[in-house]
Every structure is written in structure tokens, then in C-alpha cells.
């Protein structure tokens, strides 16, 4: 399945969270690696969007949409913090 990165879901994330989330700092709940949302692995092949840790492949985020309503599962992160993590 084709792998993209967090930049590709900037619009969807902004639609859900009301601001840019691609520069947010995040920590994987499985391996503990930290990074920014723009760098996480994204897959579009299934019925929704699946985001995985680029280091250990742990599922970080799942977004599905039905009848105009988003269902967002973010339990894979140990931490997700805004605003921007960029200096």
C-alpha cells in the first residue's frame, strides 16, 4: 500500500481540529519516539485514513467519515501537543 506522510492530511486535520496540526509535536505510544505530525506515515488504502509511527509501525491515528461526521481515534499517541513544535 502506498505510504504518504502527515502533510497529505493537513486539510483533514485542520477541518477536525480547527488549526494546523502538521507542526504539532507527537510521541508514539508504543516505542516512545518523538517527532512532528507531518513526518508520520499515512495510508489511504482502507475505508479511512490510517496513521502509523514511522519508526515502529504502531497505529497512531485512525480517521473515518460517515454521513459527514468524522470518527477520530487518536489513542496511539502517548502525547500530541500544539502549537507548533518548530523553532
Amino acid at each position: 500500500m502506498t505510504r504518504y506522510d502527515g502533510n497529505a492530511i493537513a486539510g483533514t486535520l485542520e477541518d477536525i481540529f480547527g488549526g494546523d496540526l502538521t507542526t504539532a509535536a507527537c510521541v508514539c505510544g508504543q516505542c516512545g519516539q518523538s517527532g512532528v505530525v507531518a513526518e508520520i506515515a499515512i495510508y489511504f488504502g482502507g475505508p479511512g485514513i490510517v496513521a502509523r509511527c514511522p519508526y515502529c509501525d504502531h497505529v497512531l491515528l485512525v480517521i473515518t467519515r460517515h454521513s459527514g461526521m468524522y470518527c477520530v481515534d487518536v489513542t496511539g499517541f502517548a502525547q500530541l501537543s500544539t502549537p507548533s513544535a518548530l523553532a
Partner: peptide, 9 residues
């Protein structure tokens, strides 16, 4: 269309 989006790249 919608945007612009993304503040990283």
C-alpha cells in the same frame, strides 16, 4: 478547493 493548508513544509 480548500486551503491553504500545512505549516510544516
Amino acid at each position: 478547493l480548500r486551503g491553504p493548508v500545512g505549516g510544516y513544509f
